[in-house]
């Protein structure tokens, strides 16, 4: 599967970008040229130079090092929140699709309520009050995202439930848990891979939007969104402060989108070439 993905030019490009972002996230302390937290007011707002390829911020911290460390936060938030959505959504989606009837009704109405809720505002409300932090952001993003996943999984379950092998197991008196996890879940796997990979780009975007509003990871953590929002104050005098993280976010999201597209093309050719929309 991976080979097929990489065979596409755009998939390859996406994979390269994603690899770079992941590398930054994993070994940030090794590759970052400076300590991203060390305040050095003597060197505040230096334009890009040999010593600081992306300049320094108002506290004299190296922007490139912060950008590299920022990849960590973006990845943590987007991967963990997406996983949480998927775990919740898959469980509830499986239950709803498999048991039908009252459970199905209840879960799907809950999904309707979640989807009818203005999600960004819900996130803002919760986080503004419990206090912004990386953990709060991961959990809220993850919880808000369950409904979309649940719907997809439920649809998938409905379409395979009637197939012979499931009917056979059921009639042989297979236990619900066994059927759910041994037979239905594996058949949802390709859907899950698509949902996950498509969602990562969205997760990075959501993280940066929330940090832009000051509701994400807290200082001194170098979140990309908060780097943009604090950099905007200096847009005229020190444009590198906001340009660097802006380009960073766009590239990272682009990478995940391209890779996600490629995965989908391979796993579900029906939907080819449309772009991300988990």
């Amino acid at each position: 599967m991976l080979r097929q993905v990489l065979a596409q030019k755009s998939g390859m490009l996406g994979a390269v970008i994603v690899a770079i972002v992941l590398l930054c996230a994993l070994v940030a302390p090794v590759i970052a040229p400076y300590d991203p937290y060390a305040i050095n007011m003597e060197e505040a707002l230096q334009p890009p130079s040999g010593a600081h390829p992306m300049g320094t911020d108002v506290f004299g911290r190296d922007v490139m090092s912060r950008l590299i460390f920022g990849a960590r936060i973006s990845m943590q938030v987007s991967v963990l929140s997406r996983l949480l959505s998927i775990v919740l959504g898959t469980l509830l989606g499986l239950v709803a699709g498999y048991f039908s009837g009252r459970w199905d009704n209840l879960i799907m109405r809950l999904a309707d309520i979640t989807l009818a809720y203005p999600a960004l505002l819900l996130l803002i409300a919760v986080i503004a009050a419990v206090g912004p932090s990386q953990g709060a952001l991961i959990i809220s993003l993850g919880v808000v995202g369950w409904a979309g996943v649940a719907r997809i999984i439920r649809a998938q379950v409905l379409s395979i439930k009637e197939r012979e092998f499931v009917m056979a197991v059921t009639s042989l008196g297979g236990r619900h848990g066994g059927i759910l996890f041994r037979h239905l879940l594996p058949n949802c796997l390709s859907q899950l891979i698509i949902v996950f990979s498509m969602g990562l780009g969205m997760g990075i975007m959501a993280e940066s939007s929330m940090s832009f509003l000051g509701l994400g990871a807290q200082p001194p953590l170098p979140s990309w969104g908060s780097m943009i929002s604090s950099g905007l104050d200096y847009l005229r005098g020190a444009p590198w402060l906001s340009l660097a993280p802006g380009i960073g976010i766009t590239l990272a999201v682009l990478g995940f989108n391209l890779l996600g597209d490629a995965f989908r093309d391979v796993l579900d050719p029906k939907l080819a070439n449309t772009g991300p929309r988990g």
């Binding site: 305040i39 108002v58 000051g214 200082p219 001194p220």
Partner: peptide, 10 residues
């Protein structure tokens, strides 16, 4: 934000 972040550093 900027002030408190600087103080945190000091």
């Amino acid at each position: 934000n900027r002030l408190v972040e600087a103080i945190q550093g000091y």
